[in-house]
């Protein structure tokens, strides 16, 4: 059990704990903070597994963008003492869906066998760049297209309100 292994399991444990808090805590602010911790723990896990760039990108995009976006949402809509109410009209169906999803994820994860032995070297940053501009070029451009589509779609929702 090397240092890396201990850290990985630590990161995993923290991320699970943070996720549980994020989902169950009644105060929205605490929930969002826990979400931020969750994202950071995932980034740490990425780092230990050798994906340096992805780890840093996770901080840049998820903590810097998504968490901020959610906080904006909270700040713009929450009344004082932002409580969360968990209400659904179909608790049984929600439970079924959640169980099915969890089961599927676990089954997929358990069946995964890596094609080659797990590397113990870090993935060099340039490898990613080489892939993006080389073999995965179509994917790269497709991402650009998806980003464009996302902007149009997202702003279409915003457009209906004339800013007031």
């Amino acid at each position: 059990m090397g240092a890396g292994d201990i850290l990985f399991f630590l990161a995993a444990a923290v991320s699970i704990a943070a996720a549980v808090v994020a989902v169950t805590d009644e105060r929205l602010l605490h929930s969002v903070l826990a979400f931020g911790v969750f994202l950071f723990a995932i980034a740490c896990a990425f780092l230990i597994m050798g994906a340096e760039f992805v780890a840093v990108a996770q901080i840049f995009v998820y903590v810097g963008g998504v968490a901020v976006l959610i906080l904006f949402g909270v700040m713009l809509t929450a009344s004082r003492g932002a409580q969360r109410t968990v209400e659904t009209e179909h608790p049984m169906w929600a439970m079924v869906c959640a169980l099915v999803l969890a089961g599927t994820l676990i089954a997929v994860a358990a069946a995964y066998r890596p094609a080659t032995a797990v590397q113990s070297r870090a993935v060099d940053v340039s490898l990613l760049g080489n892939a993006l501009l080389g073999p995965q070029l179509v994917g790269f451009e497709l991402i650009g297209l998806i980003l464009l589509a996302s902007v149009i779609a997202a702003l279409a929702v915003v457009r209906r309100e004339p800013g007031r």
């Binding site: 340096e52 760039f53 901080i59 903590v63 810097g64």
Partner: peptide, 18 residues
């Protein structure tokens, strides 16, 4: 010396925004 040092430097202030 992080391999992704520059991006790290730019990503960390995002925590400050939070």
């Amino acid at each position: 010396d992080l391999n992704a040092g520059v991006l790290y430097f730019l990503a960390v202030p995002a925590i400050g925004v939070i």
